[in-house]
Amino acid sequence: MLKKHSPHFHDDWDPESARGIIEQYKGLEGPLLPILNALQERFGHLGDPAVRLVAEILNLTRAEVHGVVSFYHDYRREPAGRHVIKVCRAEACQSMGCEDLVGRLERALGIHLSETTHDRRVTLEEVYCLGNCALSPSAMVDGELLGRASEEKILAAVGEQA
C-alpha cells in the first residue's frame, strides 16, 4: 500500500530488478521513454546507476541517456519526498487564483516550489495544466487529481496518506 500511495518513495537501487525492467521494454520501437518511466515508477528517481545501466543495455552512451533524462520535467535525478504535490500554474488555474494557492502551500509547508520538506515527507512542485481546467484550480497529489483545489483539500490529501 505504501508504494501505491507514494509513487515517489525512493526504494533502494536494485540493479537486478532494474535490468529486468529494462529488458522487459527494450524490444519496443523507441524504448527509452517507456524504460525511464518504468524505472522512475519503480525507484522514484533516475540516479547515475540507472542512467549507466540503461545506456549499457540499449547500447547508447550515458551522455545520450542523460540528455534525455534532463530534458523532461518529470524525470528526477534525485529522489523526491514521500508525497508529491503538483499545483497547476497555467492560465485557467491562474484565473481562479492558483498563485494565491501556491503561496499558501509554500507557507504551510515551509518550503518553496521544487523543494522537499526537511522530513522528506512532501515535495511541492508546479505543473502546467492537468486537463481539469473547468474545475480550476487543480492539483495532483501522488497521482490523484484534485479539482477546485484549496490548501485544506490538498493538505488533507497529503495528511491522510502520510
Binding site: L28, G30, P31, L32, L33, P34, L36, N37, G67, V68, F71, Y72, H73, D74, Y75, V127, Y128
Partner: peptide
C-alpha cells in the same frame, strides 16, 4: 500502442513528439 510522455509541453509539436517517441530529447 499508447506511449506516455514525461512532462514536456513542446512534445505537443508534432516533430518534437516524434523525437520523443523515438526515445530522444523532444
Amino acid at each position: 500502442e499508447a506511449r506516455l510522455g514525461a512532462g514536456a509541453y513542446i512534445c505537443g509539436e508534432e516533430t518534437s513528439l516524434l523525437e520523443s517517441l523515438e526515445g530522444k530529447r523532444g
